[in-house]
Measured scan of single mutants.
Amino acid sequence: VKKMAKAIMADPNKADEVYKKWADKGYTLTQMSNFLKSKTAGKYDRVYNGYVIHLD
């Protein structure tokens, strides 16, 4: 998940494709939050927020 999150950060155009894969795998927002937690607070906030919007 972190590898794909980094791919989104490097190229935001990949976001919809990645979010669809995550949704197809049934990842919940709680799971995504836990996967994307980082020592650098807020590092993956943009990715998480994008997934929230995708699921909505």
Results as ranks from 00 to 15, higher is better:
Glu17Asn: 08
Gly50Ala: 04
Gly26Tyr: 04
Leu29Ser: 08
Ala5His: 01
Lys6Ser: 09
Lys14Gln: 10
Met32Tyr: 00
Asn49Met: 14
Glu17Tyr: 11
Lys20Met: 09
Met4Gln: 14
Asn49Pro: 03
Asn34Gln: 13
Met32Pro: 00
Phe35Thr: 02
Lys6Val: 07
Thr40Arg: 09
Lys39Val: 10
Asp24Thr: 10
Lys21Phe: 15
Met32Ser: 00
Val47His: 01
Asp11Phe: 07
Asp24Phe: 07
Ile8Thr: 03
Lys25Tyr: 12
Asp45His: 05
Lys25Cys: 15
Asp45Lys: 06
Ser38Trp: 06
Lys25Ile: 13
Ala7His: 07
Tyr48Met: 10
Ala5Thr: 02
Asp56Val: 14
Tyr27Gln: 01
Asn34Cys: 13
Leu29Thr: 09
Asp56His: 13
Ala41Asn: 11
Ala15Leu: 06
Val18Tyr: 09
Asp24Gln: 11
Met4Ser: 07
Asp16Pro: 14
Tyr27Cys: 05
Met4Thr: 05
Gly50Lys: 04
Lys39Ile: 09
Tyr27Ile: 09
Thr28Gly: 05
Trp22Pro: 01
Lys2Tyr: 00
Tyr51His: 02
Gly50His: 04
Lys20Asp: 05
Phe35Tyr: 09
Tyr48Asp: 02
Tyr51Lys: 00
Lys14Ser: 09
His54Ser: 05
Ala41Glu: 14
Arg46Cys: 14
Lys14Asn: 09
Lys3Ser: 11
Tyr19Phe: 09
Tyr27Thr: 00
Leu55Pro: 00
Asn34Arg: 13
Asp16Met: 10
Ser33Lys: 15
His54Ile: 05
Lys6Asn: 13
Lys3Glu: 13
Val1Asn: 02
Ala41Tyr: 09
Tyr48Glu: 04
Gly42Met: 05
Met9Gln: 06
Ile8Phe: 01
Leu36Asp: 03
Met32Ile: 15
Ala10Ser: 11
Tyr48Lys: 03
Pro12Arg: 07
Lys6Thr: 06
Gln31Ala: 08
Lys21Gln: 15
Lys20Arg: 12
Arg46Lys: 15
Lys3Gln: 11
Tyr19Val: 01
Lys14Leu: 14
Gln31Arg: 04
Glu17Ser: 11
Thr30Met: 12
Ala23Ile: 06
Lys20Thr: 10
Gly26Leu: 05
Val1Glu: 03
Ile8Lys: 02
Lys37Pro: 03
Leu36Met: 01
Ile8Arg: 00
Asn34His: 14
Ala10Val: 09
Tyr27His: 02
Val18Ala: 06
Trp22His: 00
Met4Gly: 08
Asp45Pro: 00
Ala5Trp: 02
Thr28Met: 00
Ile8Cys: 07
Ser33Thr: 10
Asp45Ile: 06
Ala10Thr: 09
Tyr51Ser: 02
Met32Glu: 03
Asn13Phe: 10
Leu36Cys: 04
Asn13Met: 12
Lys21Arg: 12
Thr28Ile: 05
Lys25Gly: 07
Lys21Thr: 14
Asn34Ser: 12
Leu36Tyr: 00
Ala7Leu: 14
Pro12Lys: 06
Ala41Leu: 11
Lys25Arg: 13
Lys2Leu: 11
Ala5Gly: 03
Lys39His: 13
Tyr44Val: 01
Tyr44Glu: 03
Ala41Thr: 12
Met32Phe: 04
Met4Glu: 15
Lys43Gln: 11
Lys2His: 05
His54Tyr: 15
Ala23Met: 09
Pro12Ile: 08
Lys25Leu: 15
Thr40Lys: 12
Asn13Lys: 12
Val1Trp: 04
Ala10Cys: 12
Leu55Tyr: 04
Val52Met: 13
Arg46Phe: 15
Lys39Ser: 13
Gln31Pro: 00
Asp16Phe: 14
Val52Pro: 01
Ala23His: 10
Ile53Trp: 09
Asn13Ser: 15
Lys2Met: 07
Asn13Leu: 12
Tyr44Met: 01
Tyr19Arg: 00
Ile53Gly: 10
Thr28Glu: 03
Gln31Met: 14
Lys3Trp: 09
His54Pro: 01
Val47Pro: 01
Tyr27Met: 04
Tyr51Gln: 01
Gly50Ser: 02
Lys37Ala: 11
Gly26Cys: 10
Val47Asn: 00
